[in-house]
């Protein structure tokens, strides 16, 4: 009467133990994979960060200004370059009339 359920319990425990071992093994494998992926993410992020820093180093305003002047013959934008033509005419009229203080 008691033996069958007892054996069932024992088999059940052995089954669970094996299953748990398999799960553990599977999870450990996944842990290693995850650690590798995390490490790769970290390294890639680090590389991106270094590239970002390099990019910002290369686009420093003083460097860009020097390159723009020396290599591209550019010059800073002056107010006259962006002046609304109508405003420019009316201002000039007042200056010519001697009203501008």
């Amino acid at each position: 009467m008691i033996r069958y359920p007892s054996f069932s319990f024992v088999f059940f425990i052995i089954f669970i133990a094996i299953s748990l071992y398999q799960i553990k093994h599977f999870i450990l494998k996944r842990e290693v994979e995850l650690a590798k992926i995390n490490k790769n993410i970290m390294l890639t992020k680090s590389d991106i960060n270094i590239l970002r820093a390099e990019l910002n180093y290369l686009k420093r305003p003083d460097r860009i200004e020097k390159l723009a002047i020396e290599k591209l013959n550019m010059r800073p934008v002056l107010p006259i370059d962006i002046w609304n033509i109508e405003d420019l005419v009316s201002t000039q009229t007042i200056i010519n009339n001697g009203e501008l203080l």
């Binding site: 002056l78 107010p79 006259i80 962006i82 002046w83 609304n84 405003d87 420019l88 009316s90 201002t91």
Partner: peptide, 13 residues
């Protein structure tokens, strides 16, 4: 010019 401030306009006059 960098900050987008236009030169003198009617208000300025």
């Amino acid at each position: 010019p960098i900050l987008g401030i236009n030169p003198q306009n009617d208000e300025a006059l």
